[in-house]
Design a protein around this nucleic acid. Structure first.
Lengths: 129, 129
DNA sequence: TATAGTGTAATAGGAAACTAGTACACTAAC
DNA sequence: GTTAGTGTACTAGTTTCCTATTACACTATA
């Protein structure tokens, strides 16, 4: 797996797993791959994965069952909270950044739309069948 | 100054200065504050500021004149390139993140618009005189 | 009971980022 | 020439992140 060398790996792992939960690839109650499994598939040390998991456990999103595995909480409300929280933080980051560049609210939406258009040119999503 | 402890400080300094250049607070040819000055105002060590500047110099955006100071390049084209590059990377980051959350292109624009609305409620920009 | 699969803990070492401090080199202005 | 303001370079020490390795604890199953 590829990581941004400007952000701690354990933190990026956390983001990836959280994103999977929000996207529904990991449903409430689902079992995560074994820690050693995750470490191998991400080409990372076990301790690094564990550090990511520790934080997620502390935040109540992951439930750890010794000898059995790690599971996504079955509390749908926590997952929903997580979703809102992450979505907002992502949007806020873009908003703050573009704001610092003196981009107005309207321009901001326009820029995003334009970017998506450009993406569409090469991806062709929604168009090809 | 406040920094995100998940990203190297020197890198965040670079971002701040680049943003100021793009926003026009630092025009082409302008002299930057002295390194020691920047270090004090950012509550950071001189070496950390210098590391940020070194990269910007290597990238051709900042020109260093020994004994005189550091200056923004007067090459407007370089500044314009920088602007496009940063804008795109900011947009791409949001796009990729929301995409991982299974948010469609249309939803994405809607979410951003909604976020801006929410901001407007507390900021009241464009409304008050 | 033995074994395989799992989470957890602890130690040791290396690399990167940051700080602190000192010294040197160049420029401009007196 | 001296001085103040500037960039540049170097060394030393601390902290955080990451890796490697070993050991232990619990669960399920044959």
């Amino acid at each position: 797996m590829e990581f941004d060398d400007k952000v701690p790996i354990y933190y990026q792992i956390k983001t990836v797993i959280y994103d999977q939960i929000i996207a529904g690839q990991l449903a409430p109650g689902d079992k995560l791959p074994a820690i050693r499994q995750l470490a191998v598939s991400m080409t990372v040390n076990v301790n690094t994965v564990q550090r990511a998991l520790s934080e997620m456990i502390a935040e109540g999103v992951i439930i750890s069952r010794r000898g059995r595995g790690n599971f996504v909480t079955d509390n749908a409300q926590i997952v929903e909270q997580l979703k809102q929280q992450l979505m907002t933080s992502y949007l806020k980051q873009l908003y703050d950044r573009l704001h610092r560049l003196n981009i107005s609210d309207e321009q901001m939406v326009a820029e995003l739309t334009a970017y998506i258009e450009r993406q569409g040119d090469s991806n062709g999503n929604d168009i090809e069948d």
